[in-house]
Design a protein around this nucleic acid. Sequence first.
DNA 1: GCCGTTTTCGGCCCGACTGTTTTCAGTCG
Length: 583
Amino acid sequence: MTNAEIAAALSELGTLYELDGAVRYRVNAYKEAARVIRQSPISVEELARAGRATDLPGVGKTLQEKIVTLLETGAIPSAEKLKAKFPASLVEVTRLPGVGAKTARRLFDELGIATLEDLRAAAEAERIRNVRGLGEKFEESVLAALDRLSEEGAPGRVLLSHALPVALELAEALRENPACDAVTIAGSARRMTETCKDIDLIATATDPVALSSALVEHPLAAQASSARESGGKIVTHTGISVDLRIVPPEAYGNLLQHFTGSAAHNIALRERAVKMGLSVSEHGIADVETGDVARYRTEEEIYERLGLAYIEPELRENTGEIGAAADGELPELVERTDIRGDLHCHTTLSDGRNSLEQMAEAARARGYAYLAVTDHSASHGFGNHVTREELAKRIEEIRALNANLGTKRFRVLAGSEVNIHTDGSLDYDDELLAELDWVIASIHTSFRMKPKELTARAVAACEHPLVDCIGHLTGRMIGRREPYDIDVEAVAEAAARTGTMLEINGNPNRRDLNERNARLAAGIGAMICVNTDAHGTDTLTNIVYGVATARRAWLTADQVANTRSWRDFSRLRKRTRANQGLQ
DNA sequence: GCCGTTTTCGGCCCGACTGTTTTCAGTCG
């Protein structure tokens, strides 16, 4: 069973308990355990079978046992018992925005509503208003929520690459307004998560209403609230909600910290504060005893007040950052400007949009010291394959290009993104691969193989002496394709053992390895390489998303191979190490 | 159900908003 499936079962059980009227702490315990399990980079099934699921924070003896029962029998007895009491479809009803477990239970008890369809019928027949405590407004909001659900499917989250440019453009527009003192992007966009539900902007202003007006009257706005002292809200033409909140500068840090989140980080932070006799909110930090409220202009002061080192937004996910901040053990995160070269891109030789020369020039203009050109290999489909002869010719072209560049400050590396066949062999012969400066091996076909076979396939590629790096290991496409069922831990161990690098692919649709896998892999000792997989000069900028994932994976510059000069980077390659007898 | 800088028992984050109420429960972020 995948972690997601185990998490879903526990989350469902939590909701069933909630419907049954359990105390909310028990419900919260299930939801929190589900969250932790969903985020675990290692197999919770294996952990539970070894009796060690309790290693996960929030999982105790009871849940350890329930997970094992779930794995062995496919069900959890307490959940089955509750499902006999009320239909499992009632869990769906609780997920409708505006309807929670308490309301769903009453609707079931008093009107027999068991499904979303029942709910719609009852609302349309105006029967819900007969339930004490619910009225006409509730019926309206239920119907509106149901309509949104059928229109959009699951509530929409957009890729960071869609949200961030909008956030940056709006923040810039606000900054240019004379009424603006400061504006910062908050929320998940600031944490650089894979997807965003909305955009949060925090500001201070000499004339708040004027600044709010600048937002609600911005050309990107398709719908807008009124411009208020406290801020404003718009929905862009692309359907992204944007909230602007304006506060006095004295509490700017408090609001920014609060709205940067994550929710889990804030909860953990407040729990820590409670133990110190403090109460943290977006308005300030209150001393519970005296009632004094301290407000802060910066986040640094807030973390300091709580006895913590400053925590970078990308780390605020409650995955150990608070403990590390308390112990002074936070990593110094890799930065975009640390990146010295990009080791994965395509040209018109395969499926790219720009020529070799254009890609090289764009990389040099970015200030890189090296760019590996890695077009697809011989068996790549879609008419974009590169034959053995074409690659040999390309190698010559790159040698000539480097000679013409005549500079030691920038070089193009002759590379290839080579398909890994189902048996783990590669798509070019070793003789040709040996001519290249750089080889990325990727799985592009037959990714529904059994997990063991798929893992063996990637491990075999790691063991090949001419493979420098494994590209986008799990193959997932955010929101579109699930990751391959591959044992990332086993591949990372092979990578660490053989000196093969593992890529963080910065394509915002991929972000692969993801932050959890990258943190796991680096922890095992695999060297990470952050690349764009750019298919044109315009997407070399996607390095920001790759670096964001690296930062969210707690990586330092040292753990990222391509923060090095070419001289130092080239020495890390397996082929160099082999030549020098280092392996 | 989990967990320990006060704890193996007794706590468990904070505030805004909404709609329905005459003082608040439920939901959300």
